[in-house]
Computed example of a mutant assay.
Amino acid sequence: MTSEDLYPVSRLAAAQEATAKAGLDALLLTPGPDLRYVSGYQALPLERLTCLVVPAAGEPYMMVPRLELPAAQASPASRLGLEFVAWDETDDPYEIAARRLGSVAQVGLADRMWAMASLAFRAAMPGTEQVLAGTVLRELRMRKSAAEVEALREAGEAIDAVHRQVPGFLRAGRTEREVGRDIADAILAAGHETVDFVIVASGPNGASPHHELSDRVIQAGEPVVVDIGGQLHNGYCSDSTRNYCVGEPPAEYAAYFEVLRRAQDAACEAVRPGVSCESVDAAAREVITEAGFGEKFIHRTGHGIGIETHEEPYIVAGNGELMEPGFAFSVEPGIYLAGSHGARIEDILVCTDSGGLRLNNTPRDLVII
């Protein structure tokens, strides 16, 4: 799988067409996932402006600081036939971009654009309304190509390989931070370019879904939630949660963990084209609520994933968007008992013509160490 497969030159034309269809005059894409998605260029986020300008009509071009020009020309963006507009230290790149665009009514700014850049564009184009480029690009980014699905499958296999090693890292007497360091090293060794997050939540910390690593010492008989993910060299992300226990788990925990298993299975089985995102959330929530733990499931069932760990579509009540083949997202219901423990089971799924395909394949049972 090559860069051309994951970041095809056709994306730029698709983004331009979507911009015109949305009634915007241009997209302004600074370093971040939107720029990488459209151009393949993983530009450094610097105070000096790098910006892909995609007008609804006319030729796109890339604004780059002169000292970054070689990097931009060596990137996958060079395949797009773009003009690279290099600016010098004494230039105002925002004014240059504004002059080239001319009088425009509405532009879409990259969702992750720094405030300093968005405000500078506002000053350079005071009569232009700014909206999020995500309103245009979401329609493209949500629908993963076969190459993107393959990249996510590769990411899933890489993070599965790490979860298989976790039992060797966990034992009573070690701190969460010590275990987390071992996991982070394993994430990189498994083929990730970056470690995006490592959650090792032992005992009562398991009731905090986004617990940060701490110096808490793991005790015998304690459940541990391990939620880990990173980004591969190609830009696509992994994310998976499994549950471990150092010795036999408390009876209460074992009972609700089985509820959680059924809830996650129910949500995964609900995935197919034409069903709403909120109905997948409801499938998990119904099982947990019927078992009496509804108030302990305190977050959405899932999030989209691709070149960002969290992107659209979101699997949550109120999202009536209908699933289509190519949607990729997590299914991760959880049950959290404050002060005691918690559990979450998470897989990445892709919606296919025939249903949901799991991209994580390590056992979902509680692993007793």
Rank of each mutant, 00 (worst) to 15 (best):
A77S: 09
L82E: 15
E89P: 13
T90E: 06
D92W: 03
Y94T: 15
E95Y: 06
I96E: 15
A98H: 04
R99L: 04
S103I: 15
A105V: 05
G108K: 12
G108C: 04
A110E: 14
D111G: 11
M113W: 05
A115M: 11
A117P: 05
S118F: 12
L119M: 14
A120F: 01
A120D: 09
F121K: 06
A123I: 06
P126V: 08
P126Q: 01
E129H: 05
Q130H: 06
V131F: 03
V131M: 12
E139F: 14
M142Q: 13
R143W: 10
K144W: 00
A146I: 11
A146Q: 14
A147Y: 02
A147G: 01
V149K: 06
V149S: 02
V149P: 04
A151N: 08
L152Y: 03
R153G: 00
A155I: 00
D160P: 07
D160N: 15
A161K: 15
H163F: 03
Q165V: 09
V166Y: 14
F169L: 13
L170P: 12
T175M: 13
E176L: 01
R177I: 10
D182V: 10
A184K: 14
A184F: 01
D185I: 03
A186V: 09
I187G: 01
G191E: 02
G191C: 01
E193I: 04
T194N: 01
V195Q: 02
V195M: 00
D196H: 01
D196F: 12
V198T: 00
V200E: 00
G203H: 12
G203N: 09
A207T: 07
A207I: 11
E212K: 03
